[in-house]
């Protein structure tokens, strides 16, 4: 019995982030405020309506529930966008992005329509529910889609900033929300498309994080500082367009680059950084903290993240190895 109770308590991590309000509550509130500010915002839900009570109260006509039918939802949003609205689709990461990759490519990206997909429960946030609920390939798929802007907020403040930025985007956007984030910013950060945010200065090592990886990077940087290692931290809030200059600068100004992401090692942040280094003929020490290209374990998120080293401790160890 004790074990069962403990595991149930651990599962609360899925829906509430350590040290801050849950991203679900935050997003519900943020979507309502976005609709307050912009008359052209319509929020479309694929069974995510329980998070949207504020919006449903204030703008019932701009909340569209389409049920457990993600592919239809994506294409319906395209139709609304073709008629002048700025639709926001809220969906679970594995189903909104991975299942609907073709609809997103064809109906949003090839058409260059201003639609935003806000995915929750990305990475291993639903790791307990099995391989079907892992979303660890979504960034690789999204990055390969021409015209799609890819945003990965590091924390709740970044989510607010990127959500507003998505409304200015000329074309489609994936906004991939991480669950297990630690606070990185103390207010909404300045975010510029295609530019990483410099979260921390340092001379020995640059750690580039995306999503929850930024909080891990920051924690590791603080731990490493105590050991006399000076670490710069960059937030890859935009994975596409990608900040090539920031990667080259990191290679030129620090001894090594380490990337951190709650995503497969195939096609995500680490792969993007390696591509930049390779294409530019830059030789530097490089390491990545990411999920292996292998069948992943099933379990509660905190235990899975620990298992795969996507934690402050895991990143710290990896950084030490890289610099050794």
């Amino acid at each position: 019995m004790t074990t069962t109770t403990n595991r149930a308590a651990a599962m609360e991590d899925v829906f509430s982030d350590e040290g801050q309000a849950s991203s679900l509550n935050l997003l519900g509130h943020a979507m309502a405020e976005l609709a307050d500010r912009h008359d052209d915002v319509v929020v479309i839900s694929a069974d995510m309506g329980s998070a949207l009570s504020e919006l449903r109260e204030r703008h019932p006509d701009r909340y569209v529930e389409l049920g457990i039918a993600e592919t239809n939802t994506i294409s319906v949003a395209a139709g609304l966008a073709a008629s002048g609205f700025r639709p926001y689709v809220m969906a679970f990461a594995p189903f909104g992005m991975i299942k609907c990759a073709e609809q997103i490519r064809t109906d949003w990206a090839a058409t260059m329509l201003p639609v935003t997909l806000v995915t929750r429960l990305s990475g291993l946030a639903m790791g307990y529910f099995g391989a079907s609920h892992h979303a660890v390939e979504d960034l690789a798929i999204a990055r390969s889609i021409t015209n799609l802007t890819v945003m990965t907020p590091a924390d709740n403040y970044a989510t607010l900033g990127l959500l507003e930025a998505s409304h200015q985007s000329a074309g489609p956007v994936l906004l991939r929300v991480s669950e297990a984030t630690a606070p990185v910013y103390s207010s909404v950060p300045e975010l510029e498309p295609g530019r990483f945010v410099r979260v921390r200065e340092g001379n020995d090592l640059t750690i580039i994080g995306t999503g929850a990886g930024v909080g891990c990077a920051l924690g590791a940087a603080r731990a490493l500082e105590e050991q006399g290692i000076s670490v710069a931290v960059l937030d890859a809030a935009y994975l596409k367009p990608f900040d090539v200059a920031a990667v080259l600068d990191a290679a030129a100004t620090t001894r090594a680059i380490l990337t951190v992401e709650e995503h497969s090692e195939v096609g995500g942040l680490g792969a993007a950084v390696a591509e930049v280094l390779g294409r530019n003929g830059v030789a530097t020490r490089f390491g990545s903290v990411a999920l292996p290209d292998a069948d992943l374990e099933v379990g509660v998120p905190a235990e899975l993240l620990e298992r795969y080293g996507i934690t402050v401790e895991g990143v710290t160890r990896k950084a030490q190895d890289l610099l050794a």
């Binding site: 592919t71 319906v76 395209a78 139709g79 609304l80 073709a82 609205f85």
Partner: peptide, 11 residues
């Protein structure tokens, strides 16, 4: 396209 048309009809 039936889905897209549905979105246009909704709009």
């Amino acid at each position: 396209n039936l889905s897209v048309g549905l979105g246009i009809a909704m709009a």
